[in-house]
């Protein structure tokens, strides 16, 4: 009986850790100080529902529709603060530590004055499995996670739309940039 309980606990721990690239973080502390918060969580059925409402006739929307076919979830957390310094780097240390694990590749890490943007990707060698963007500004904090199979060519096709910059993805793309001002 004890053995069975132990196995069940270990299995549930393993399942809890492997959520397909979804990073877990407790935002409550930061959210308590924020003046404005946005929390978007779109998973399985809701993503499919959103997909049904995307038009096939409009090129942009049909491309988004294709992009989200393999997605498991889209998660957005944004916080706006009245004053600077209402959250610190220490508040985000746990999240940054998760992004430093070997399964995540940091493709962009910029830090200038009091602003920083970190973009990390989790890949299986061929497809992106997850994309995480952490943008920290003195009075604004945003964290975006896109979890699931993301076809780089589809992401490339969306370049220039929805505010997504022109980027090159796929086999012909240049080596990913990883820059830091302090480097």
């Amino acid at each position: 009986m004890t053995k069975l309980s132990l196995i069940l606990i270990l299995t549930s721990c393993a399942l809890a850790q492997d959520q397909g690239g979804l990073l877990q973080f407790d935002w409550n502390k930061i959210a308590a100080k924020a003046a404005n918060k946005v929390n978007v969580t779109l998973e399985g059925p809701m993503l499919q529902l959103a997909s049904q409402f995307l038009s096939n006739d409009q090129k942009d929307e049909s491309q988004v529709k294709q992009l989200i076919q393999g997605l498991k979830g889209v998660y957005v957390r944004t916080f706006e603060f009245d004053k600077e310094g209402q959250y610190s780097d220490a508040d985000l240390s746990d999240l940054r530590a998760q992004l430093r694990t070997p399964e995540w590749s940091k493709i962009v890490d910029t830090e200038e004055k009091k602003e920083s943007v970190i973009i990390c990707m989790k890949t299986d060698g061929k497809l992106f499995q997850a994309l995480a963007i952490l943008s920290a500004e003195p009075k604004e904090l945003s964290f975006i996670q896109i979890v699931g199979a993301i076809d780089p060519s589809m992401l490339g096709a969306l370049s220039g739309k929805f505010g997504i910059p022109k980027m090159e993805f796929g086999p012909k793309s240049k080596a990913p940039a990883s820059k830091k001002k302090n480097d």
Partner: peptide, 10 residues
């Protein structure tokens, strides 16, 4: 929400 997330990510 999906389009907002994409625009924010963009």
């Amino acid at each position: 929400e999906l389009l907002f997330a994409l625009e924010l990510a963009g």
